[in-house]
Nucleic acid binder design. Structure first.
Lengths: 327, 327
DNA sequence: TTGAAAGCGCTAACAT
DNA sequence: ATGTTAGCGCTTTCAA
């Protein structure tokens, strides 16, 4: 593996000159620079990033730790972060914590050890520990879910409000017994969506189930709800992965979305317009969340004294037929 | 940021002892080890991975460069790679090349510079350049699409064969003018699926369009095909993202999958059973592809002299109603 | 404009 | 069992 000394030897100059030439410093003779470039190319030289970063005490890579690679909401965030980061010369590495606190912990540790320039994190749950990041002074921005203490910037979506709006929409459509299917307790988005729903139906009329943010759990939970003495005639579902399970549950009971059970789900997944009837959704600005997060992170990297900020983006209800009786 | 010397000073030992204690070497007095642990904890010490890896000349991170984070096929591969890697103490960082050769090039460069232990790559297209990896001796395994020269192990899916089987299935279902919608020329999976289809219908009866592996392009291409003088009465679609576009096209023409136009699509995405009629698919063993790839990569990392191998996994046709006239 | 040399933080001989 | 020391590959003063 060719090192800078190999290149220096081949070009007949010092390692300092190679370094300067390869980093485009203006103070180097064009002729020498060319010789260096050539030597580097011939040797297939790739600077050792470890050594470079160790010396420079900085890296041009951001870590993005998300809680589920298979959830379109998070992959859209990833695109947003990436598009913006690339433009500023940063690479972003994606880590999948898989809604698993142990994995999340490991990836934060990796980010710390590899001395990444900054971290975008969608905290997995209750006990996310960002103390290490804070101590090291690694810039951090939380997305989707807030962090216990404001350990950095946050980019959130006003999902409680959106849940309330969706619930009102269902009520306005003539549904009388609106229920809610949400994620695990302690996961802020899950709690907020439930709260927004409860705000509207009133504590006395709450009927809900919790499940993991996964299809299978949601299917079972939906079935339970449907088997109650006074089953819901409409359902607010906390994300698109769960919606899959809910739709399966309905189908297995011979129930048609809209006509029999009104459905509104969070997240405008690509398939939601394909089904019959098309799914009414709460569209979250995921890509934008990612962009803003990256922006804040880069700003904080170049100026660590900035005040921590919280940005809250609005979600948008997209009415389709699954929330209409006449679907 | 605390360094190993800080810990050493605090614990009243040498840096060597700190290093040994923290790395669980057996040759260190339990009492001292405890003192070191304590000092490290108090200082919030995180070993500098850059320095460590520079010294050790190795990293415990794998890079996984995939061509589309929003494609369930690739995220399933990611899970497979991750599950296996984690088990051996490796972390995996995901890079999204976005079907873009420039991005892919950048990420390969990053992988090279950061001296990752190995790379799993789904080559984006024609001109993927893995020369750098080869020269550095960085272990590489290609997934989904083969590499020009056998630059390492490969894990592929026998998609030509699967495409042929799917086409035969359509023909057996009574469809007479089977068409094909595939990805860009030069992308091996796209070419193979087209070839498998052509193998069965015969060169003379080929009717097909190419588009990016995206919904919108596929929608337009499908519309073109449907507007031909002798339009297809069935379609083989090269992936689930394209299938979304195709289904939209059909719907906009008032055509029902199955009854009017038989449909088989590659990839068993989670929503394919939700639509009416449910989609007949060619299910690729994506998770397994990831697992095998990680296995091969780890094997090659520990024994670089291994022969390069090619593993070809079988895809499975799952018959549902979109390929039946009586849907 | 170029080179010599120090040093980033760590680990692994080598000594003790 | 512990400490001393060299050095991984690079960048960056400092001198020339």
């Amino acid at each position: 593996m060719a090192t800078i000394s190999d290149v220096a030897a081949r070009a007949g100059v010092s390692t300092a000159t190679v370094s300067r030439a390869l980093n485009g410093k203006s103070t180097v003779d064009p002729l020498l620079a060319a010789r260096v470039q050539e030597a580097a190319a011939e040797l297939g030289y790739h600077p050792n990033g470890l050594a470079r970063n160790l010396r420079r005490q900085e890296t041009a890579v951001l870590a993005l730790i998300i809680s589920d690679v298979e959830n379109p909401f998070f992959t859209a965030i990833a695109r947003g972060v990436e598009d913006l980061a690339q433009r500023s010369g940063y690479s972003v590495v994606l880590c999948n914590s898989d809604e698993n606190e142990e994995k999340e912990r490991r990836y934060i540790e990796v980010a710390l050890q590899e001395r990444v320039a900054g971290v975008v994190l969608s905290p997995t749950g209750r006990s996310t520990n960002v103390e290490g990041l804070r101590r090291q002074g690694t810039p951090l921005v939380a997305v989707d879910r807030p962090l216990p203490a404001a350990a950095g910037d946050q980019v959130l979506v006003d999902t409680r409000h959106a849940a309330a709006e969706a619930t009102r929409h269902l009520l306005a459509g003539g549904y009388r017994r609106v229920g809610c299917l949400t994620g695990p307790a302690g996961v802020r988005t899950a709690d907020d969506r439930l709260a927004g729903y409860a705000d509207v139906v009133g504590e006395a009329n709450v009927r809900f189930r919790r499940a993991e943010y996964r299809a299978e759990g949601a299917r079972l939970a939906a079935l339970e709800l449907l088997d109650e003495p006074s089953p819901p005639d409409a359902l607010l579902v906390a994300n698109s992965t769960m919606a899959i399970g809910v739709l399966e549950a309905l189908s297995s009971r011979g129930l048609r979305p809209g006509r029999d059970v009104g459905i509104v789900s969070f997240d405008d997944a690509p398939w939601t317009t394909l089904i019959d009837p098309p799914l009414t959704v709460v569209a979250q600005p995921a890509y934008e969340v990612g962009r803003v997060a990256a922006q804040l992170l880069l700003a904080r990297i170049s100026d660590s004294s900035r005040e921590a900020s919280t940005t809250t983006l609005e979600a948008r209800l997209i009415e389709r037929k699954s929330s209409r009786r006449t679907g």
